[in-house]
Structure formats: structure tokens, C-alpha cells
Design a protein around this nucleic acid. Structure first.
Lengths: 300, 300
DNA sequence: AAACTGTTTTTTCACGATAAAAGACATTAA
DNA sequence: TTAATGTCTTTTATCGTGAAAAAACAGTTT
């Protein structure tokens, strides 16, 4: 088992959805662009679609023969990247308790437990290290720094610095910048969600990320933009872990976002600053209350 | 050639220097702590020292027999880490021109050129990616974003944000904090260097890094502290590359540092802010003038 | 001749294997 | 009985290898 063909399987599944819409598929390069994979993978997909009687394929003609059934799809879990699988296992371990700060992380053990090679685990840990939760001892093990109160405070400090600056940059953007249209779209989505918050509150986190990323992008600074990856990652797992008062929290956040959006549209820097600060403050509060342990003083 | 024994060789070389100072070496665990390696490596070192007649080794007694000669040392180049070797090759390529932004980076080609396995190159690129100079296309090549003017501006923007905040935090530190002693030491070193700047100007960059790292540490924020790695890396290679007016530049910087230190010691936040701003401004100017190309507007 | 399909080559991704280095355990000396 | 040395085990760092996926090249079709 050298390399799983999850790219193919995932693209195949997405490709199946195209069959519903048309009765003849476009050219190979076009399909490749559509599904974000190479022609090689597209041809493998087409070959299977032909085999399973979904399409008739002859050179340029790719006629749809029947609609895809449920069992045509590859199972969801086979479409994940190895690094996604490792990340999930790792985070589960980390959040499932018993993960004390200072604990050692063993590459070999992790690899065996997850059932993957050590190289993939190593690469994951290196990539993951930029989140500031783990640290490497040269020629030796990794050390878990832990999802502590100190971590949350350091994270939010940077977040607030970056977002205030990005928001100010956003508000200063010229009238004809395309971001204003993007903001309008997001505003509508917020309105819609606000109206149906009782049932759709769990859709907020995705909207939240898109909104903040839009703002951060206005900074035109790769370090600021990239830092949002850290925030997004933490919030992603934090929300999965802590479902307490999810509805209320999200309801408040949507309202704050709408006020924030209004402030941005007003282009009044004072208002923007105030709205941004208010939202960030409650975001910080939410994050902090989800960390059980008491405040640990940090040493250098 | 599975893994080079550079840890052993480097520790051996450093171990040789100990022989000059004493006529009998301490215990194995003590040596390990001293050289920062495990006992396993210490024992390999001691074995070789015995073999080459440098010491007489019998259990606890490790008597020095003769002073080390030049040819007892392992050659410098054999003591480097693989990742150091790869980094150097990569940066040489990157700075030696012909490295246009947008260019593809080929793992296999790099590995072959440097004469190492692809795994090491991959791991290096993943680690290096946090510097914001390269970016990965999933399942495909890396893209060079380039050491452009935009990069320098984005880097300095964050640097200034972080350092102003750290400097303020530093000045607010209590009287009895040990950092004030560290600062005094650094101040003396600056004074000494200032006096002999004509001959020792090339020693500045090392002092510069220690000074700024001390200040950043006062932020007590891992993201701020870690970000200095990006700055240090850029300055390291930038200084190697651009030797124009090195003496003058460093002379100015030393003076600015001394003013900055004085401001910190005054604990007057206004003065600290002014001194910090002034130094950062000239640091930015130095960096920007070393980038040849014209300003390229950045797109999102 | 532009855009497609068919075929071949190259590169990325992931694994198992192995030497270097770290770490753990057992034994011995002070 | 503490702290060292001697020995054995485990883990990390790195490579070569092979399948998946991308990319390049060549040949067709419209």
C-alpha cells in the first residue's frame, strides 16, 4: 500500500454529481479543470464510469447512460487525504484529555496507532508545528505544549492585532474594489442565517471563516492571511469539542458580524474599530471559557 | 548511506576543545549535558579519543594524554546537519538570480542536485514554507513566490507591529526582572563593538539577533517569538548577499541600538516607541534598497 | 491550426528498511 | 545508596522503491 488513490476517488464522487446535470460530459481537459485534477485522473474516472455503465465513452463523445445510484459512490472515508486522517487522529488524542503539556510525542507510536508510515507522521508534525502547539527537540522527540489558557491568550492577542489592522485596511479600500460585492453577498448570507438560526446554527462556523478570511485578505499581507490558518484550525476543533451553548454563541456572533459589516460599509474607522473590538472580545471570551484549567503563569 | 553521523562529529570537535582546559574529563552524563548529546554519542567520542591517543580511558578515569592537533578535528563540512546543507543549497539557488517569482520548484531535481533523498528535501520545503517564500500546490509542485519587494514590505510590516509591542512590554517589566541584567550585558557588548567597529563590523549581525530576540521574548507570545525566525533567516542570507556599505550600515545600527537600549532603560514608553520606530525604519530601508527590482503591485 | 485524445515520462506521495542517536535497564564502583 | 559505567532497546533521520497522479509529448479530429 504505497499511496492511496483518494484523489481519484474523491474526484470520481464529485464527478458523479455532474452526471445528474447533463447528458454528455465535456472534454477531458475541461473536466480536469472542473474537478481540479489532472487528465490522467480524469481518464481513470471515465474508464470506471464506462465500466459501471454510467456513460458510453468513445473518444470525444461521453454520453450519460443512467443517473448515479448511491452505491456508485466511493465511501466517504476513502476520499480523505492521509494528512487529514493523521490530523484527525492526532487532534482526537490531543483533545480527548490525558494530553498534559510537556508530554512527549512519539512518531513511531503515532504511526503505528494510526496505521501509516512514519514519514507521513513526521511531515504532518512539521506542518502542524507552526500552530505553536508542539515543539521539536533536535534529534529527539516532539514536546506537546498543549492547548492551554496561555496558548489561547497568545493566539487571540495576535488575532486581535491582525484583525484590527485588516479591518481598517478593508474600510479604506476604494469604492470600486470587488470586495464590497463579496461583503454584500456575505451580509445577505448572514441575514438569511440570522432568520433561521434556530435550525441552522451549526452552519455558522463555515460562514464565520469565510467572513474573517475576506477581511484578513484586505491586509495584503501573507503573514496575516496565513495566520488565519492557525485560528481556523483551533476554532474548527474547538467547536467540535465544545458544543455547549452553541446556538446562543452563534446567534450572538451573527449579530456582531452584521454590526461589523455595517461598520465596514460606513467606512468610518472609529465605528469599524469599535465593532471589530466588540466581536473579538466575545470571541476571546468564548474560547477562554472552553478551556477548563486555571490560568498558568508562563515562563521564558 | 542512511544517516550521517554529523552529531557525533560535531560533538567530537567541540569535545576536543575541552581537552585544552583540563587534564581529566568528567563523567559521561556530565559530558553529555555539556555537549548536548546522549551518552551513546559521548561513548563513541571517548572511544575515538582513546584510539587516537588523546586520552587514556578506563571506566571513570579519563586522563588527557596530549593536546588536540589540527588534524584531530573532523572537517567542518562534515559536521553540518542535512537540513543545513539543503537550506544553504536552496538559498544559494534562490539568491543567485534566475529565480523568478512563479517558478516551479522540483523536489526530485533539488534532491538529485544536492545529492540527498527526496524525503529530506520535502521535509525541508515544508519547514521552509512558513517563511512565506514558497507555496505548495497539492499533489503537485511547489511555487516560488520570490524574495520580492512585496515580500520585504509584508515582512517588515509584521516585524514593526511585533517589535513595537514587545518593546513596550519590555519597558513595562518589573525592576527585578532578569532581563534588565541581560540588557546591561548586551549594552556593554554594543559599546565594545562600537569602539572597534572599524575592524569588527561583521560581528554585528550576531549581536543584532540576540538583542532583538531578547526584546521579542518580553512579549511572552510564542507567535511573536517564533516570527523572529523569519526575520533572522532573511537577514542572515540578505547580509551574506549584500555586503555593500556593510560597515556603515552596522555602525548606524549599533548607534540606534544604544539609543533604543537607553530608551528601554528609561522606561518612558514614548521614548521607547520613538527609538524603536527609528531603528525599524532604517532597518526597513536597508532591506528594501537591497532588492533590485521595482515595486510590483500585489494582487489577491 | 486549435483543441482534443492517446501514450509515455516525470514527479509526488507514502512505505519499509537501516544506521545514527537517544533512552532505558542492569550492573558495578565509591 | 547514590551515581557512575556497561549493555540492550527504542526512536529518529534518511534512503531507495513503487504506485498514484501530474505533466509532457505525439498523434488525431474537427
Amino acid at each position: 500500500m504505497s499511496k492511496s488513490n483518494n484523489v481519484y476517488k474523491d474526484a470520481y464522487n464529485r464527478g458523479l454529481r455532474l452526471l445528474d446535470e447533463t447528458n454528455s460530459l465535456p472534454s477531458e481537459p475541461e473536466l480536469g479543470a472542473l474537478l481540479g485534477v489532472s487528465r490522467t485522473t480524469i481518464r481513470t474516472i471515465l474508464a470506471r464510469m464506462e465500466e459501471t455503465g454510467l456513460i458510453a465513452w468513445n473518444k470525444r463523445s461521453k454520453t450519460v447512460l443512467r443517473a448515479p445510484r448511491q452505491d456508485d459512490f466511493f465511501p466517504e472515508e476513502e476520499t480523505d487525504t492521509l494528512s487529514q486522517i493523521i490530523e484527525r487522529s492526532f487532534m482526537r488524542r490531543l483533545l480527548a484529555g490525558g494530553a498534559e503539556p510537556g508530554m512527549q510525542i512519539n512518531e513511531l507510536e503515532l504511526a503505528r496507532e494510526i496505521g501509516v508510515g512514519t514519514t507521513s507522521v513526521r511531515e504532518f508534525l512539521i506542518r502542524f508545528s507552526r500552530f505553536g502547539l508542539i515543539e521539536k527537540r533536535r534529534n529527539s522527540h516532539w514536546v506537546l505544549k498543549g492547548f492551554t489558557r496561555a496558548f489561547a491568550l497568545e493566539l487571540t492577542e495576535i488575532r486581535e492585532m491582525f484583525e484590527l489592522r485588516s479591518a481598517a485596511a478593508f474600510a479604506a479600500l476604494p469604492e470600486d474594489s470587488p470586495v464590497w460585492a463579496d461583503l454584500d453577498v456575505l451580509e445577505d448570507e448572514h441575514r438569511l442565517l440570522a432568520r433561521e438560526i434556530a435550525t441552522r446554527f451549526n452552519e455558522f462556523s463555515e460562514l464565520d471563516e469565510r467572513f474573517h478570511r475576506l477581511i484578513h485578505r484586505a491586509s495584503h499581507n501573507r503573514f496575516i492571511v496565513d495566520f488565519y490558518d492557525v485560528i481556523a484550525m483551533i476554532f474548527h476543533y474547538h467547536y467540535q469539542w465544545n458544543k455547549a451553548q452553541e446556538r446562543e454563541r452563534n446567534e450572538v456572533a451573527v449579530t456582531e458580524h452584521l454590526a461589523y459589516i455595517a461598520a465596514l460599509k460606513s467606512r468610518d474607522l472609529g465605528k469599524v474599530d469599535a465593532a471589530c473590538r466588540k466581536h473579538l472580545k466575545s470571541a476571546r471570551h468564548t474560547l477562554l471559557t472552553s478551556i477548563p484549567e486555571g490560568l498558568q503563569p508562563q515562563r521564558t
